[in-house]
Write a protein that binds this DNA or RNA. Structure first.
Lengths: 334, 334
DNA sequence: CTGTTAGCGCGTTCAT
DNA sequence: ATGAACGCGCTAACAG
């Protein structure tokens, strides 16, 4: 492993001169520049960014800490992050928390030790503590997808409340009055916001107030399945289901299939999160589509800007619109 | 940012003693150990792994270089890698090559500069050069999913040839004689192996020899769509399609749908790669299922073992079995 | 069991 | 325009 010293001595210059050539910093005569490049080439010199980072206190490394990369929504966000980071010369660590605070804490500690420049965080809890920790470690943060208290951090998320409201409006227009919400975990803001939007939809002052039926679970297939079984056992039975993420939606559809309840004939279903076009033949669910790739891209851009010294103490909460895509999983009722 | 020096002086010991305590290396008396821990706690000491790596020449960092994390097959592999690496105390960089050699080369260079300990590589071309490059940089490698020439590297892959053969056997038993293969790119071993298995299936010496119909494309939805259109325009028209990966399969199904060709009534379809149970309600395609998570896990385990000095110059090609899952996309004819 | 010395590879600082 | 000296934070090698 040749070092910059080796390159320098082969080129007959001081190490710092070689450094200047390789980093395109400072003035070096064309003659020396040429000789340094040739020496580097000849030796197959590969700069050691570990040493560089130790000196410069910048690692050009980011981390994406999310719940589960296996969820196509997060996969798409991740792709947006990686593309954007890579274009700007940053590498990205990926960390799956599985919605577990213990895992999140462990990862943040490791990332601090690795001296990453910035973290894109999907927080497991609605808590400012992780942000404080990272800041104290001199690591910049952008929060993705979820609100947290405090005004000390950038947040990029979607308008879950409004989108949920719109979904309910859709169902009401079709005549539905018994709409069950299959929700995500309490304390996760995206889940809570969808509850709020659902409630606003039911209690619209211009219309009748409809009965509230909220089931609380996890953002998983199993939970979606369970909640749907519970919903089906109620009397009176719902005519429509609102699944608050993609995994819950799949679980719900499986449960309905197992219970021989045809969709949309006997049950309308709407959901949050689309499945990527590349993995579904005949898109069927009426969904609220979050711009996943764009979220990842914007968050990364913002983070990198912040690393470059922009924004300083100016923190923004960027709320992206959600698009409702009507498909074939709902129908109007008597 | 307190350093180990700060910890040491607060504890009243030499830096190396503090180092020994923090790294659980060497002997330190309980008394001093206690004092060092207390000092570290009090200062909120966070070890700088950059410095540590510079000294020790080990970064406890791996990289997964694959084609596209957006493909659920690769997402699952990635999850297997991350879980396994994380358990062993390694962090993972993710890199998407999009099957482009130029991107792969750029990533490998960056990873060399970052001094990762090891790389899990899904090579874009059937070429030993990337392996040689990494070895020369003193970076260990495990090849995932694809064969490459040379016996100088561990390979973890599935038996694509046999699985493709089995798929064709299935179709032949159902009476199909005009089976078109919608293949992946030439030179990608997993694609080539599926071609070989297809050919063996058609030319089984115990049976009639069937006509060979191979379309070559990319592992993408668009390509699958195109190839299917081409297949449908042939005379005589195929009775069965073999899609050689999941994206091609989805593209094929879309094309068939657009052409009003019902599956399986007028066209049987089999494919490589399953879609995760969590994102599909009613599994429909008869597929060859590769153990994606296990592939990621095994490859990572092997890589970490190698880093620990095991195996030395012993290289293995581990070929995992593929499971055929019969579902509803085929039917017997005439 | 503990400490001293030295140096990993690089770039900032200051000098020439 | 080029270079010398130094130190980033840590641990290997060697002493005692």
């Amino acid at each position: 492993m040749p070092t910059i010293r080796d390159v320098a001595s082969l080129a007959g210059v001081a190490p710092i001169t070689a450094s200047r050539v390789i980093n395109h910093s400072g003035y070096v005569s064309d003659d020396l520049r040429q000789r340094v490049f040739e020496a580097a080439d000849q030796l197959g010199y590969v700069p050691n960014t570990l040493a560089r980072s130790l000196r410069s206190k910048k690692s050009r490394t980011l981390a994406l800490v999310l719940t589960d990369i296996t969820n196509p929504f997060w996969t798409t966000v991740a792709r947006g992050v990686e593309d954007t980071a890579s274009d700007a010369g940053f590498s990205v660590f990926f960390c799956n928390t599985d919605e577990l605070e213990s895992k999140q804490a462990r990862y943040l500690e490791i990332l601090a030790q690795k001296r990453v420049d910035g973290v894109l965080l999907v927080p497991t809890t609605s808590d400012n503590q992780p942000v404080l920790y990272l800041k104290q470690q001199n690591i910049d943060v952008v929060i993705l997808d979820r609100r947290i208290p405090g005004n000390n951090v950038d947040i990029i998320r979607c308008d879950s409340e409004e989108a949920a409201y719109q979904l309910i409006v859709r169902l009401r227009k079709l005549g539905h009055r018994r709409i069950f919400l299959l929700s995500g975990p309490v304390g996760v803001s995206s889940a809570d916001d969808r509850v709020s939007g659902y409630l606003r939809g039911l209690q619209d002052p211009d219309q009748d107030i409809l009965p509230v039926n909220i089931l609380r679970g996890e953002f998983t297939l199993e939970s979606g399945y369970q909640m749907t079984c519970t919903a089906l056992s109620q009397n009176p039975c719902p005519t429509a289901l609102f699944a608050s993420n993609n995994f819950i939606a799949i679980g719900a559809l499986k449960a309905l299939q197992d219970a021989d309840v045809p969709v949309p004939e006997e049950m309308s279903v709407v959901a949050f999160d689309d499945l990527p076009g590349a993995i579904v033949v005949d898109p069927f669910l009426t969904v609220a589509v979050q711009p996943a790739y764009e979220m990842g891209r914007l968050a990364t851009l913002r983070l990198i800007e912040r690393l470059s010294g922009l924004h300083e103490d100016q923190f923004e909460e960027i709320v992206l619109p959600v698009q409702i895509t009507d498909r074939k999983s709902t129908r109007s009722i008597g």
